[in-house]
Amino acid sequence: MTAGTAPRRRAGQGRTPWLIAPLAAVAVAYVALPFAALLQRAPWTDLDDLVGQPVVTDALRLSITTALAATAVSLVIGVPLAWVLARGHLPGRSATRALITLPMVLPPVVGGAALLFAFGRRGLLGGPVYESTGLLLPYSVWGVVAANTFVAMPFLVLTVESGLRAADQRYEDAAATLGASRWTILRRVTLPHAGPSIVAGAVLCWARALGEFGATVTFAGNLQGRTQTMPLAVFLALESDRDAAIALSLVLMAVSLAVLLPLRDRWLTG
């Protein structure tokens, strides 16, 4: 994915093959049209009242912070995993990759149930931990982070892995020949090369976590101020008030665009 950045600049903008532009336009229109429809249905006059309520501000704060926390956790354990998948020589690598991809395939609600069976009060690991310490992930903000991480981390791992694979390994070999230690090579050669893919992976991961619904509600529950993120608030608003649900969705979209648009210029073209 990230391999495309360098050749794109070299090829230049004026030489697009003729079929590419219309097909790309179809893709953009296909995604843009539903949003235009959503904007057209938006309750613009009541927007201030709808989004100023404590239930919305609580949910927005929780969504942003838990998505950030999930991204941080994913970076700490996901980047090393991506390195192992791209560079390591452990047996069962494709099985590991398939396993790490499963949360992307699984309906998030099922993922949430699986988390409950593992880390819940009666869970495989959660049971003994709860019995001995009284600590419980579900119904807490940490449960939201756990659900977000489970669902969103694969996006980071796969993106970073492909970035590492695309990077030219001869630089690492050259550094090794010149006597650099393994840690120095990782820090000064490998990670800088993988930088754009790490940023892209983190952005994907954050965006996925921000919109996460099924695993969160199944594993962490739904309580305003503690576990009710924006998607949960949107879902419940939809039960009673469609205008409010659309207004909340607009807020969620505005937040993701506000983060994603500036990121593009800052990081990915450098």
């Binding site: 994907l204 998607p231 993701s256």
Partner: peptide
């Protein structure tokens, strides 16, 4: 990333 973000935001409406 943008496409995913918006799809997921929509998905949130259940």
């Amino acid at each position: 990333a943008l496409t995913l973000a918006v799809i997921l935001a929509l998905d949130a409406t259940g």
